[in-house]
Design a protein around this nucleic acid. Structure first.
Lengths: 334, 334
DNA sequence: TTGTAAGCGTTATCAT
DNA sequence: ATGATAACGCTTACAA
């Protein structure tokens, strides 16, 4: 199978050019005779022909492939982002190579290098640290669009959610119902989205008459399930009680918090009012009042690929786009 | 940046071969002078060098890249499978290209063709239908390892979970506690895993003295959230009641079931006993007794890549491996 | 110790 | 209407 053009042409006693012209649909333009066309078509129908994209890439110096580097796929936000990115890329005629860094900065650098070696046309990155982001900006010679977060605050291109607004809206919504202070469990406050969500949270609290020093924020190191557990543990140790109203800065953090409660108490009190960043249908599983801020990953993906396309086409735009989030509330029926 | 070997050699007035030898770590073998080596090293340190993997691939006819085709990434099982696959591949020196079919057979065929055009060294597929699986087997000229399901029942290579045993174990475990008939909500019974899980379920029920005709199985078309909702709707319409004890054939189906209950009743009765295929930490969110069968995606990934490696090395093994699953039970404290 | 040259399968340009 | 050929950057065998 998988004849090359060379094989086809020699089998049919035609020149490579002739075969290529009909294979590339330029038969009419060059007025290749019907007979020749048919001969070639028949042969291809019989034996098949799969173009060698590698050779094509070498010649044209483009691969029609883009790279996506995310921390992981177990965070549902990243997996749905990856899925949306893959869809958007394909609709623009690109393949997507998805890689995970597992939060390892060195790994992230190696992945970027490896994508460049493979000559992808452009790279999307959810950077793990400020340092890696700066490194990529400095060393890469491919178009880069950063996703989900921007540490750099320079003229690099990025598409992120409007996290301040998101934190503000979530907090306001919750406060309207519960009228009480809310605790914020923050995964990794080094991450700009977390920082901004906290800022939005505090801003909304203050606006609702809560003193800034009464806004409790618990910090952790990373955005993983384990840290959610530690955060809740820490709260319980310091307060000798569980928090009635809280917000989790990401789904993995929430997963950890709930897991810890389940272990600690044996159940999840359904009186808790819970706010969450990122939406997931499994939030339905909770019996509580629950508000979640859904990021619009389709929108993020489409904007990101549009920017990338511009860059590839040589327009040196350095676009920076904030995408609106949407609140989903699930309230108990009384 | 990104000098090519050609550029380096002409800049330093050395031959291409010389530069290449030191870049490929063969300097000692060919006794390149220290001075020359240093000159090259310094230059590369200063200007950088990223090998053109595309050109290399064209010459060597291998890309060190594998393809993975899954239905989607929103099903947490597939996203964690993809993550594990990516890890395993990388540990063996391969890149992984992840693509989603969104359950579209034609799409699946196109993706496979496109991976072949890109000359990947091998392809992992979670096939959507028997027809596509057969098609791949017949038309592909790359090594293929099927994952999660095998429709073909011939000598193709696959790695799947032991789904009969999985269904049997889950049902037995649940029955031990509840001693009552259990309802099975089946996503897409055309899928071999679902079929086998049902067979295991029935086998366990019968063994526990339940008459086979009292084993209720509700069927649907696909494995998506929407079908879970329809299944529960159908049950409620025919029984005028909700099922006390049930099993969902996949997480999306369970998500649909729970969502429907939440809409229909306004809450999830915590008396329900729930069995689920595939594990997810968010099952912690449910207040119910819940048993889940965890597939060992790391094991699946490692076996799959091992088989692939053999195939690539030319050993015509057609391995077929069933991976054990593990039960996770979360029982309410009394 | 260093250099030369063929070839991988395309594309693109120029001849016939 | 069809054919010949250079070039993309790499590997590899062989020559000097």
């Amino acid at each position: 199978m998988a004849k090359t053009v060379e094989q086809i042409s020699s089998a049919l006693n035609l020149s490579i050019t002739t075969v290529r012209l009909v294979l590339n649909g330029q038969a009419e333009r060059y007025r290749i005779s019907q007979k020749t066309q048919k001969k070639i078509q028949d042969y291809v129908n019989k034996y098949g022909y799969t173009i060698n994209h590698i050779a094509r890439s070498l010649k044209l110096n483009k691969t029609e492939t883009l790279g996506l580097i995310v921390p992981n796929l177990s965070n549902p936000f990243f997996s749905s982002l990856a899925e949306s990115m893959e869809l958007s890329c394909r609709s623009k005629g690109y393949r997507l190579m998805i890689c995970c860094t597992h939060n390892d900065p060195e790994h992230e650098k190696k992945l970027l290098a490896s994508l460049e070696e493979r000559n992808v046309d452009g790279i999307f990155v959810v950077p793990v640290t400020e340092e890696t982001q700066m490194y990529h900006i400095k060393t890469s010679n491919k178009p880069i669009v950063f996703l989900d977060r921007d540490f750099a605050q320079n003229d690099s291109s990025w598409v992120v959610s409007d996290n301040f607004e998101s934190g503000y809206a979530l907090t306001s919504s919750m406060f309207k119902l519960i009228q009480k202070p809310i605790v914020f469990f923050a995964g990794a406050p080094i991450l700009p989205p977390v920082k901004e969500r906290i800022a939005g949270f505090i801003s909304a609290m203050v606006e609702n008459g809560i003193d800034k020093k009464d806004c409790e924020v618990f910090y952790s190191q990373t955005d993983l399930v384990n840290d959610g557990e530690l955060l809740m543990k820490e709260y319980i140790e310091t307060h000798n009680d569980i928090p009635q109203n809280f917000i989790a800065s990401s789904l993995p953090i929430l997963e950890g918090i709930i897991s810890f409660l389940r272990q600690h108490l044996g159940y999840i009190p359904d009186s808790l009012n819970i706010g969450a960043f990122d939406e997931h249908i499994m939030l339905n599983f909770l019996a509580n009042n629950i508000w979640s801020m859904k990021q619009n990953d389709k929108d993020i993906a489409e904007n990101a690929i549009a920017i990338m396309n511009n860059k590839i086409l040589g327009e040196k735009s350095s676009d920076q786009i904030k995408i609106k989030t949407e609140i989903i509330s699930r309230l108990k029926k009384k």
